[in-house]
Amino acid sequence: MNKLILGFKREYWEYRRMIMIVPLIFSVLVILASAAATYSQKYERAQSGTHHQSEPAQMQDEQAIKPANVMAPDEIKNEMRKRTPVEFVGFYIGLAWLTSIIYLLSTLYSDRKDKSVLYWKSLPVSETRNALIKLVFGAVVFPLVALAVAWVVYLLLAMLGLGAVKSIDSGENWEFVERTVIAVRLFIWPLVAIFLGLIWGAPLFCYTLMVSAMSKRSPFLLFILPPIVIAALEGIFFSSSYLAGFFFGHFPFVVLAEFAHASSVGALLNLFFIERGAGLFMGLLLAAAFFVTAIWYRNNRFEI
């Protein structure tokens, strides 16, 4: 257990900047954009003589929401979705996965390039453990850190816009939604999305790790060329796009697209485990093949 924790610590020590910088920069942009929008609207209203309260930009639409007790059920659902932070945190998770692909692409390559692989390999830690830690760090820890930042920023903006929230909470239904459904969607849904992203996107994550383990010069070229070449060859010789569709369809971002439109966590799980169960299973098999290849390269062809 200690070795496992130290493995994650080692990744954090090495990639601390990478894991934090993207969500932090994005947060600063969100906060600045929100402040600019708020100031802009305040100015416009002052110009037109309208009295208003100060609130962050993403809360502006909410002012237009009618009290829940005068809405139709479908209307409530739609408005609820508008108010929920799914897209907001989803964007953070998506950015984190993009960053994690860069991380996975460089993590096994960089220690081979600077020869520090010889030091790591002189310690009694197996390559399977190392590769597994790196995979989880990229596919899970990166989005979890981004999610934590997203939560803080969202709650900060929500608090700043508390006046606006209060102004629309004229009905008890909305109070209920505020305290339960939104909290679930803010805290539980993204965690489910990260889990689903890990298993649905496993072929991409493991492929990236394999490229990092086997690349001798430019991991990025080796990362993009084979899928493009295979897609082109399949198109030319078989006039089909099954392989390319399968690979590109297994990007974790697919989960985020479904996540934004899902009506419940159950529906999301049902979609990936039942309706797309065969695809998920095939993807995991492919991911296992990539992962085993990465470990083989790590054990046998680790020098550049």
């Binding site: 020590w13 600077d114 020869k115 520090s116 692989v117 010889l118 030091y119 002189s122 310690l123």
Partner: peptide
């Protein structure tokens, strides 16, 4: 590797650590 220590050459300690 529990009973063997190994120094490859001077350049193999990771520079970032």
């Amino acid at each position: 590797l529990r009973d063997v220590a190994y120094i490859a050459d001077t350049a193999v300690l990771p520079s970032w650590i």
